[in-house]
Design a protein around this nucleic acid. Sequence first.
DNA 1: CTGGAAAAGTCAATAGTGTTGACCTATTAT
DNA 2: ATAATAGGTCAACACTATTGACTTTTCCAG
Lengths: 149, 149
Amino acid sequence: MAKKVNDIDSIREAELNGALELFHFAYREFTSGPDRILEAKGLQRVHHRILYFVGRNPGIAVSGLIEILGVTKQALNAPMRQLLEMKLVDMQTNGEDRRVRELRLTTQGASLESSLSGLQRRNMNALFAKVGPQAEEAWRAVMQAVAGR
Amino acid sequence: MAKKVNDIDSIREAELNGALELFHFAYREFTSGPDRILEAKGLQRVHHRILYFVGRNPGIAVSGLIEILGVTKQALNAPMRQLLEMKLVDMQTNGEDRRVRELRLTTQGASLESSLSGLQRRNMNALFAKVGPQAEEAWRAVMQAVAGR
DNA sequence: CTGGAAAAGTCAATAGTGTTGACCTATTAT
DNA sequence: ATAATAGGTCAACACTATTGACTTTTCCAG
């Protein structure tokens, strides 16, 4: 029998299993740093995600944030209330359409966000420096392909 | 002021933010395929992780599995019971030390595992083929560095 | 042979994250 | 006026995981 082009032999299968495991363990490690900082503040990973996307998209509407996060408004409700109460996120009524609420990080919120994501950025920056710019570019290409956007 | 070697300017910061988002969205996409298959069988992501690691480590003890998964035995208990009841995993007392239970996939379990991880392997194999072997190697190097093992 | 440690199993309480469904107000657009 | 949109909230439920407490079985060292 001729070997098919898309055939995955047992050697290749083992290599691919290695890739699956890398995804699993790398992601776990990637999120562990911020998790520890958050814990000390009585916050969780959701809060980091909210802070991150509000920080990158100042003035974003609640509905926009829900879309990016891929969750329901009910799931966003509780953690968002905490962030508002802790004055880490600011909510203001939009001038043009008073139904819409614009979200922004407060100075404190930006500071916390920076300490959370900054840790991840420094980690990634350091290891990108080790592997070199070509490897960084290749990594991005693969991740982009996986994310499929 | 001279620019520090490890200084992250705003351009670099934006690039690194892109990397953080790639991690987030790629991981989400990566897990979504198996999640859909599992849902149809009334199983969840935990079950996939168990099936995967038992499949890669036939004869592994319960304590070994707990260690790899990084969870407590209580967290493992319920999903494992389901898998045993559904005859997807087989549990046998070790001959040398009768305290230890050895875990193995049944034929059915191996088949389900293969349809779950197989989907991920085929996806990864296809996109590795697109980006080429050098990019694949670079991706592995970065993920290895992130996982830090 | 006895007592401690190891492997496994189970129950209960709690927490975090998320869902669907149902309802509500305020505001905008037709 | 009415329907649609944006947002908020409550309740019920599900999944994943934790800590703590306790049990059984088995092994090993003194």
